[in-house]
Structures are given as C-alpha cells and as structure tokens.
C-alpha cells in the first residue's frame, strides 16, 4: 500500500462521531443567531433538552460568559425541585433569568381558564408572546427536537413567527446548507432550534458524555400514581386520584418534565444516565406517547398548539 494509507492507519481516525457533529452544528447555530440578532433570548424550562441547550450555549460562547438571558414561562404548576434546579443553573452559568408567570396573564385576563385545575400548558404561548413584546426579543432559542412529534419534523431550524406568534407550516422559508436567514420585519421574531436534529437517545448520550446535571425527577424514585389506561398519572394537588382509583407507590422516572398537569412518569428503575440510555435503547414507546397527557388528545394536537404560538 502507499504511504498515505499508512499515515491514516497511524493517526487517530479523523472523522468525528455523531455527537461531535451534532454538537458542532448546535454551536454554529447558537453563534449565528447571537451574531446576527439584536436581542436573542433562550427559553429555559429546567427540562433535559433545555439543560443540554444551556450547556451548548456555554460551549458556544466560551471563553466569554453566555451572552444570552434565560426566559422561563412559569405555569405555576411546576415541580418545586425543577424550579430550584432552574435557579441554581442560572446562577452557575452566570445568566440573567427572566421569569414570567401564566398566573399574571390569568390575572390580567389575557389567559382565561375554563376551570381552575385546567392544564396551563397551552396557555404558556400567551404569556410567552407578552414577554417577547415586553422585552422586544427578536429571537427565541429553544430545545425542541424534530423527532419529538410529527409536526415538529417539518419545522425549520430558524423559524419565522408573526406578531401573534403563529407558525405557518405552509409558508416556511426554505433552509439550505447551514445558511440561516435570521432577518425579520419589525414585530416578528424567529424561533431557533439548535438541537433540531437530535433524538432522545442523542440527548441522553450527550448528557452522559458531558456530565450535565439534571433535576432528580429524571431518575428513578418512589412516587404515588394512579393508572389511567396505560398512563401513570402522578398523584399531586393538581392531579388528585379520582374516587375509586387505587393509589400505588411505584418506582418511576420522568422522560419529559413540564407542567405537572400534563406530564406523566414511566415505570423505571434507572438511577444513572447509563441506565436511562439502556432503557431508551430498548424502549418501545415514543417519548411523548408514553408520557404526555396533552398530545394524546388528537393526532394534530401539537401542530394546533404551535400554530397558536406554542414553542
């Protein structure tokens, strides 16, 4: 063989593995948006996808501190430990944290509930749009992924929203190569999804590789639940057991963490990230199929929410 082949054999393999490529793509997107947009912000919920995004932002800006503020739209129905985790992370990464409450939109009348215990998840869109107007954000970065849901598979990485926050799936900008068009008319903004191309498994593998801290809810713990069909509903003050239902204490974890009223845990004994990766590899159900009380309403539930300005 010629000398070139020998060279190749002697050197470490030049190709990057898939996590390196996904990371590089996300860093590129984060840098493009912060270079081109006037007032970008990162939506931060304390969930695993936003934990990964915050870590990526740290790597994108390094050695500068993260040049983005964080925005959390708090439904008031979050687990205390997630809120504590959120505040801890904002402090650790030295980021300014803005919190806007759905409760305030309810008080103002821009959000109206049908009944007091109704899920506030879809109402976040209203509070988010109010916050965007208040601060004048022109770009909102989020941790949504295309593999989460069929409507999300059609979403661009940089996606234009009008002043009502509407997503128009039929009227999206074509997105080619890695040439992102971040320009918008005044009053409009872009939603940016740097981890669009990541799957649930990629996220867990990256969390393991980078040793990213997560709220304890993601790991196996004992919790009171009731079984409704194939869903495990956590017993909380917002989702109490109905009469006649049997409350069980089981070992479980959350695959997605959001509003208490719409996320359900899965039975699990995984106590480490490696355990979770093993379970994810073998899992037969989609991330949302097993755990979301809101996407089950209909096949188009996510698309409908997105059209209304949901992330």
């Amino acid at each position: 063989m010629n000398s070139q082949s020998n060279d190749l054999l002697d050197q470490p393999h030049p190709s990057a593995d898939h996590l390196d490529l996904l990371e590089a793509e996300a860093l590129f997107i984060l840098r493009e948006v912060t270079a081109e947009c006037r007032h970008p912000v990162m939506l931060y919920s304390g969930g695993k996808d936003s934990a990964v995004l915050l870590h990526l932002a740290y790597k994108a800006f390094h050695p500068e501190r993260i040049g983005l503020a964080l925005l959390h739209i708090d439904t008031g129905h979050n687990y205390d430990e997630v809120i504590a985790y959120r505040d801890r992370m904002a402090e650790r990464y030295d980021c300014q944290l803005h919190v806007r409450n759905v409760e305030d939109s309810i008080r103002k009348g821009s959000v109206r509930l049908r009944h007091p215990l109704e899920s506030r998840n879809s109402h976040q869109s209203v509070t988010l749009m109010e916050a965007i107007a208040e601060f004048g954000f022109d770009a909102c970065l989020g941790g949504a992924r295309r593999d989460e849901e069929k409507a999300r598979a059609k979403e661009r990485i940089v996606s234009v929203r009008d002043e009502f926050g509407q997503w128009e799936p039929k009227n999206q900008r074509p997105e080619l190569w890695s040439l992102y068009n971040t320009r918008v008319a005044p009053g409009n903004h872009v939603r940016v999804f740097p981890i669009s191309n990541w799957t649930e498994l990629d996220v867990w593998q990256y969390i393991q590789r980078e040793d990213i801290e997560l709220p304890e809810l993601y790991f196996s713990h004992l919790r009171d639940i009731v079984r409704r069909g194939d869903i495990l509903v956590p017993v909380t003050h917002l989702t109490p057991a109905n009469q006649g239902e049997t409350v069980e204490t089981i070992s479980c974890r959350f695959r997605t963490v959001g509003d208490i009223s719409c996320t359900a845990p899965v039975a699990s004994t995984a106590i480490t990230v490696a355990d979770i990766i093993a379970e994810t590899t073998q899992c037969l159900l989609t991330e949302r199929g097993a755990t979301r009380l809101d996407d089950r309403a209909s096949d188009g539930a996510m698309e409908q929410r997105k059209k209304e300005g949901y992330f």
């Binding site: 593999d147 409507a151 669009s196 191309n197 096949d299």
Partner: peptide, 23 residues
C-alpha cells in the same frame, strides 16, 4: 408515519420537506 401536518393527512399529500431520524 411521515405526513406530519393535519392538511397532509386530510388530503393525503406531503407539503414540505420533513426530516426523519433512525439509527
């Protein structure tokens, strides 16, 4: 499995580029 939008499913057509992941 791949047609993600309501209009697509109703009309049996595909409207836009969609990205799929498998490993």
């Amino acid at each position: 499995l791949t047609d993600g939008l309501i209009a697509e499913r109703e009309q049996g057509i595909t409207i836009d580029v969609a990205y799929r992941y498998f490993s």
